[in-house]
Amino acid sequence: MSEARATQDRDDEALVVSQLADGVLRLTLNNPPANALSIAMMESLKSALVRAGEDEEVRVVILAAAGDLFCAGHDLKELTAHRSDKDRGRAFYEQTMRLCSDLMISITKLPKPVIAEVDGLATAAGCQLVATCDLAICTDTSSFCTPGVNIGLFCSTPMVAISRAAHRKQAMEMLLTGEPVDASTAKEFGLVNRIVPKEYLRTVTDKYASAIASKSSLTLKIGKEAFYQQIERPLSEAYDYTAWVMTENMMARDAEEGINAFLEKRDPKWSDR
C-alpha cells in the first residue's frame, strides 16, 4: 500500500475530506451528525468530484461519511431561513435543487466508478446520493428513507435516482409512505449491492475499490458511460449504440493488450489508451 496522499489541505473542518491511495480516492462527508447537503457541502463535494475526474491518479472514488449518520439530505434549517427573503425563498430553493441535481449528474458522468460506503441513515437527498452512486455497500444497521411526504415536501428529486435504482412499486412505496427500510430491504429493492457487519465495512469497500482500480481506466470510462447511455434507450437503439461502443473499444490499445494477455496467460499491462 502506497502512502496516502491528501488531495486538499489537511483541515479537520473541511466539509469533504479527501484521501488518495493506490488509485482509490476516499471522499468523506465531514459535517456530523447530519452531514446535510447544504449549499456549502454540495459545492465542496462537487468540486472534489471535478478534481477526481481530472486527476489521472484517481481510478475509483469511495463516498463515505463521518459519524453515525451517512447523510440527512438537504439542510432544512438553511432552507427555512430563506422564508424571510422577499420572494419567500424561491430563488434560493431553485439554486439548491439545481445544485443538487448537478451534483448527482456529475456522479453519473464522472469517468470513474463511485462506490457509496454507508454506515447509518441515508435519508431524502442522502438516499438519493446512495442511489446515484454506481455501487453501494452498507452496514447491517443502515437504513434508507424518503420521508419528505411526512413534512409536506415530496422527495421529487430523490425520486429520479431511486426510481432508476429500485423497481417502480418499491420506489413508490418508499416515496408514498416515507417509512425507513432496513439494509436487507434496501438490497432487495436494489439500492445497495452488499450488506456487511460494521467492523468489516471499510475492508469490503476497499476490496471492491482495489479490484476495480486494477482495471484499465479507459475501459472503465467507456463502460460506465455506455451503461448510463444505453439504459434509457429502446432495446434496438441500445444494441445499435453498444455495438458501436464495443467496436470503438476494440480499437483501443488496452483491449488489444488485454486480449493478448488473456490468450498468452499473463497479466495485462494497461496503458489506459
Rank of each mutant, 00 (worst) to 15 (best):
residue 52 A to D: 02
residue 175 L to A: 14
residue 109 K to T: 15
residue 88 R to C: 09
residue 104 M to R: 11
residue 259 I to T: 06
residue 265 K to A: 15
residue 94 E to D: 07
residue 151 I to P: 00
residue 101 S to I: 03
residue 197 P to K: 10
residue 126 G to D: 03
residue 167 H to T: 12
residue 241 Y to I: 09
residue 48 A to V: 02
residue 260 N to H: 10
residue 83 R to F: 12
residue 33 P to N: 07
residue 121 L to D: 06
residue 194 R to K: 07
residue 124 A to G: 03
residue 200 Y to T: 11
residue 27 L to P: 02
residue 50 V to S: 07
residue 131 A to L: 08
residue 66 A to T: 14
residue 124 A to F: 05
residue 249 N to E: 12
residue 6 A to F: 13
residue 128 Q to L: 02
residue 198 K to H: 11
residue 246 M to S: 10
residue 202 R to S: 03
residue 74 H to D: 06
residue 144 F to N: 06
residue 185 T to P: 01
residue 74 H to R: 11
residue 215 K to C: 07
residue 16 V to Q: 06
residue 116 A to M: 05
residue 9 D to K: 11
residue 239 Y to N: 10
residue 93 Y to S: 14
residue 235 L to Y: 05
residue 85 D to L: 02
residue 150 N to R: 13
residue 65 A to E: 09
residue 99 L to G: 09
residue 243 A to C: 04
residue 220 L to E: 08
residue 1 M to N: 11
residue 114 V to K: 03
residue 3 E to T: 15
residue 270 W to H: 07
residue 238 A to T: 13
residue 5 R to I: 15
residue 125 A to Y: 05
residue 19 Q to F: 01
residue 46 K to S: 14
residue 59 R to M: 07
residue 140 D to A: 12
residue 35 N to F: 03
residue 218 L to N: 06
residue 86 K to I: 07
residue 184 S to N: 08
residue 125 A to R: 00
residue 118 V to R: 01
residue 127 C to A: 09
residue 127 C to T: 00
residue 87 D to A: 08
residue 66 A to N: 11
residue 205 T to R: 04
residue 87 D to N: 08
residue 246 M to I: 11
residue 84 S to K: 14
residue 55 D to R: 06
residue 252 A to D: 08
residue 114 V to H: 08
residue 119 D to V: 03
residue 169 K to P: 00
residue 215 K to D: 01
residue 240 D to L: 14
residue 78 E to R: 05
residue 132 T to L: 05
residue 239 Y to I: 14
residue 24 V to S: 02
residue 251 M to T: 11
residue 255 A to F: 15
residue 200 Y to E: 14
residue 36 A to Q: 05
residue 78 E to A: 08
residue 250 M to D: 15
residue 138 C to H: 01
residue 233 R to I: 07
residue 160 V to T: 13
residue 28 T to I: 05
residue 243 A to E: 07
residue 81 A to H: 13
residue 204 V to I: 05
residue 118 V to Q: 03
residue 168 R to C: 03
residue 14 A to D: 09
residue 260 N to L: 13
residue 198 K to S: 14
residue 183 A to T: 10
residue 100 C to E: 12
residue 118 V to F: 01
residue 97 M to V: 10
residue 161 A to M: 13
residue 205 T to K: 02
residue 131 A to I: 01
residue 18 S to E: 10
residue 208 Y to S: 04
residue 136 A to I: 00
residue 211 A to K: 11
residue 146 T to F: 05
residue 223 G to F: 10
residue 216 S to I: 10
residue 62 I to F: 03
